[in-house]
Design a protein around this nucleic acid. Structure first.
Length: 553
RNA sequence: GCGCUCAUAGCUCAGUUGGAUAGAGCAACAGCCUUCUAAGCUGUAGGUCGCAGGUUCGAGUCCUGCUGGGCGCGCCA
């Protein structure tokens, strides 16, 4: 969809180009950077300069002469600088745009562009070895907002969580739990693996749960005892992770267990297929994949000399499965530490004949938490970890989600805990939420005063005239375009940025134009309609970010 | 050393895919509440877009080199 604000302008320019025999040219209309340059601009004359062998200004003159703008809606058309054509709108133009926004009601901003398309978004994918870490928060918020963005443009989205409950890390977890179990039973000198063990307080909690369920029956160290510890640990960790995700409003449709790849034979199949392609060889007792033949720098081990596959092989099998499901888009949300791995995996999957152009990888950089101007240490004394749950306790889910998506994924995010903690003034989340609450409050007052804010006919919109009203409409009109651009780029921060400009435009409007105390009933109705449209944009935009839109603050 | 990535106001970041005079928030300074939420609004100040070349009508944006951060480069995941 093309920005609705510019539809009429585009038609005017297109018609003029037609008349000049340039009907094949698609003019792009853009918002000028400076307000002094008008409400809309086209660079089409600059782009045609080379093709026509004329100066851009001369071309601009010809185009402008050939145009037939509606004088009720277009106040001025100027040629500026090297050949920009600038348009200035009359309030009537903005009234048209507002009417179209109101027509779309609560659906405004959401599009059906990708209706019938399916997307899979894999995110979180933390193994069940402990509670989520604050750093996971960025992956959680980013992945979920991307899923919401894709839904906003019409995709049917599956949210997927990939996990491994069988590997070395889980063995470490089991041993850690078992050690604490024995220590709690009085074997205080039972050794704890300081190097590989999980040190958190939660391990004791799990161990206490083992005691509650099994008493002292596991005192004899057997494989069974470790299996039980692993199983109890896995359940405990998953419960913890799900509880944290729940608090952030995040739900997955599919939990994919890496282990199932072994049971279902996908691992075997994958390695056989790679072998048939001549990409597999044995060296030093291990099995290698010749990723150098696929344009990468090094070959990698896919089966260790112990006979155990490395994580790469199941990752390849898993991506083959994801690509064979028929989704139109497969999104992986990973931390920057996966950068090398994902290249190898995709190279192998491509060699196996899958269309990896459907895969889009969102790699986010790491998060630094700052407190009082210095990096905040996430481990407390006693080795206890500060968790994502603790962060939510401290800041609330809305602030946590917003802060993790408000910057582009590829920047190293600095999470300012002091700024986030502020319940007033400077917190960027509250700025948006406050605008929403303010509007709700106006409508509450309107109801009390018996002001009808019913349906809007177009002729009621003639009351638009204040610059702040026009500026607000101009901003609101960019919402559908913003959502599409954000979805295209898989970049929720685009929406966060945009919502800030919406809130700003609204607060200015609110300050300069009284709504309920406007001079005439007609203006009251128009301004209520404008406030209502703003409320919809804020509500829908915040929804995409997974942030609540409170009615009162 | 190699790969990926980033470098824009004191700090944190935008910059609509190559367009006009570089944009916000925080911090600083000065104003605005007897009227719909002051968690707000208005204004001032703050810049050699890391450095050097190149591409063209035009570069913060694209290409090359350099400098400096981050991440990765193990039969860990």
């Amino acid at each position: 969809m093309i920005c609705m604000l510019f539809d009429s302008v585009r038609t005017i320019v297109s018609d003029a180009l037609d008349r000049l025999g340039l009907g094949d040219v698609e003019p792009t209309i853009e918002l000028p950077r400076h307000e002094s340059h008008g409400d809309a601009a086209t660079t089409v004359a600059l782009q045609l300069a080379r093709r026509l062998g004329k100066s851009p200004r001369a071309i601009a003159e010809e185009i402008v002469t050939a145009m037939q703008p509606d004088p009720d809606r277009i106040a001025a058309v100027d040629i500026a600088g090297p050949g920009f054509i600038n348009f200035r709108f009359r309030p009537r133009y903005f009234a048209d745009v507002l009417a179209r926004i109101l027509q779309q009601g609560k659906q405004f901003g959401f599009s059906d562009r990708y209706n019938g398309k399916r997307a899979n978004v894999e995110y979180v994918s933390a193994n069940p070895t402990g509670p989520l870490h604050p750093g996971h928060g960025r992956n959680v918020a980013l992945g979920d907002s991307i899923a919401r963005l894709l839904e906003a443009v019409g995709y049917r989205v599956t949210r997927e969580y990939y996990f491994n409950n069988a590997g070395r890390q889980m063995q470490n977890l089991a041993r850690s739990i078992y050690a604490r179990y024995r220590q709690l039973l009085g074997d205080t000198d039972y050794p704890f693996d300081e190097e590989n063990g999980y040190r958190g307080e939660y391990i004791f909690e799990i161990a206490r749960q083992v005691i509650a369920q099994y008493g002292e029956r596991l005192r004899e160290e057997t494989d069974d005892a470790l299996t039980i510890c692993r199983s109890v640990g896995e359940q405990w960790c998953f419960a913890s992770i799900r509880r944290t995700l729940e608090r952030l409003g995040v739900h997955h449709d599919v939990y994919f267990n890496e282990h199932s790849l072994y049971i279902d034979g996908n691992i075997e199949q994958t390695i056989t297929a790679l072998r048939e392609l001549g990409l597999v060889y044995e060296k030093d007792g291990a099995t290698w994949i010749a990723t150098t033949k696929l344009g990468l720098e090094n070959d990698r081990v896919i089966v260790k000399s112990s006979g155990e596959p490395t994580y790469r092989l199941p990752d390849m099998a898993y991506h083959c499965i994801k690509l064979s499901r028929g989704d139109d888009l497969v999104v992986d949300v990973f931390g920057a530490d996966h950068i090398a791995t994902i290249q190898e995996v995709l190279a192998a999957v491509r060699a196996l004949g899958y269309d990896t152009s459907r895969v889009r990888v969102v790699l986010h950089q790491m998060v630094t938490f700052m407190k009082e101007g210095v990096p905040f240490k996430l481990s407390k004394r006693s080795g206890e970890q500060y968790t994502l749950d603790d962060l939510i306790d401290e800041l609330g889910a809305d602030v946590v989600r917003y802060f993790f998506v408000m910057r582009a994924a590829e920047t190293q995010l600095v999470f300012d805990l002091d700024l986030a903690r502020q319940q007033s003034e400077t917190n960027p989340v509250f700025y948006l939420q406050y605008a929403h609450a303010r509007i709700c409050s106006v409508f509450a007052n309107a109801r009390e005063l018996g002001v009808e804010s019913g349906t809007m006919d177009q002729h009621h919109l003639d009351g638009i005239e204040h610059p702040a009203e026009c500026a607000l409409i101009r901003t609101l009109a960019q919402f559908p375009d913003t959502i599409e651009r954000a979805a295209e780029q898989l970049a929720p921060y685009v929406v966060a940025d945009y919502l800030h400009t919406v809130a700003e435009a609204f607060h200015t409007f609110y300050h300069e134009c009284r709504i309920l105390g406007a001079p005439t009933d007609e203006i009251v109705r128009v301004r209520l309609a404008l406030a209502d449209a703003t409320r919809t944009v804020l509500h829908n935009g915040l929804h995409v970010l997974g942030v609540g839109a409170p009615e009162r603050m």
